[in-house]
Amino acid sequence: MEPQFFILFLLMFFTIYLVAYFVVFRSWSPKIRPEASSCLISIFHGTPAVVLATYALLSNKSRGFSSPNTPLENLVLDFSIAYFATDLLHYLVFFPGDVLFIAHHLATLFVFLTCRCLVSHGAYALLSLLILAEVTSACQNAWTLACARSHDSEFAGKVYHILSPPFYAFYSVVRGVLGPMFVYEMCVFYMSGAADPVIPKWVWISWLIVVASAISVSILWVSNLWIQLFRERRGLFYKKVT
């Protein structure tokens, strides 16, 4: 890992979080300020990560599931490692009981760090998954912020209700269809043994377990949101007809 870039990214995300907490969202309720601040650093990570990862992968003509990491791919990994480390600190300080998100961040950091610092191969697979994971980030953060203020802001409530169906649909396609398809391709390649000379078996097995678990939880999460949405809309429909 290039410590200068990692430290720079870490300071950047930490500064954004502090500015969000003490300046941007200072008038918000103390109960939702931490979550809103987390959303802001996620916004500064999500879309830029998609753009950087896409450019890094397109710039690597020899990209493959076991190809060596390029300097640009490593830079994107440093960028994301810094973000997840900052957001992990956020959860440890404000939501230490949120075991699911803490475990998610620790597992993600494990995958990125082993790729970046231990084996120096396989960034193509992980950055492709990063693109799939973060392409919905901007929409998800806007939805989260609107949801957080929906009870005390009429405008936020309208945004939340309007944004929910397209966000759920977008998220469902990416996490429920494209993600599993890509993970299946990873499984086929790694189980063939083609990557074993450069990526130890225990490493790629752990990657697949982490990724498959994350996708499964994502599908369960969005499924529950769809159920909640249908119940809410059905309740509104019955109120109108009665």
Rank of each mutant, 00 (worst) to 15 (best):
L109M: 12
L109E: 07
F110G: 05
V111G: 04
V111D: 06
T114S: 12
T114R: 10
C115D: 02
R116Q: 04
R116T: 05
S120V: 10
S120G: 02
Y124D: 13
Y124E: 13
A125Y: 14
L126C: 07
L126D: 05
L126M: 11
L127D: 05
S128R: 00
L129W: 05
L130D: 01
L130W: 04
A133L: 11
V135H: 04
V135I: 15
V135D: 05
T136E: 06
S137A: 14
S137T: 13
S137F: 04
A138K: 00
C139V: 06
C139N: 00
C139W: 07
Q140G: 15
W143N: 08
T144G: 02
T144W: 01
L145C: 03
A146F: 04
A146T: 04
C147V: 01
A148M: 12
A148N: 04
R149N: 08
S150H: 06
D152K: 01
S153W: 01
E154I: 14
E154T: 05
A156K: 02
A156H: 09
G157A: 10
G157L: 10
G157P: 10
G157N: 03
K158W: 11
V159W: 06
V159C: 09
V159H: 04
Y160M: 09
Y160G: 03
Y160D: 14
Y160A: 15
Y160N: 11
Y160W: 09
H161E: 15
H161V: 12
I162G: 00
L163C: 07
S164E: 15
S164H: 08
S164W: 04
P165N: 02
P165F: 11
P165Q: 03
P166D: 01
P166E: 02
F167H: 01
A169E: 04
A169H: 06
F170K: 02
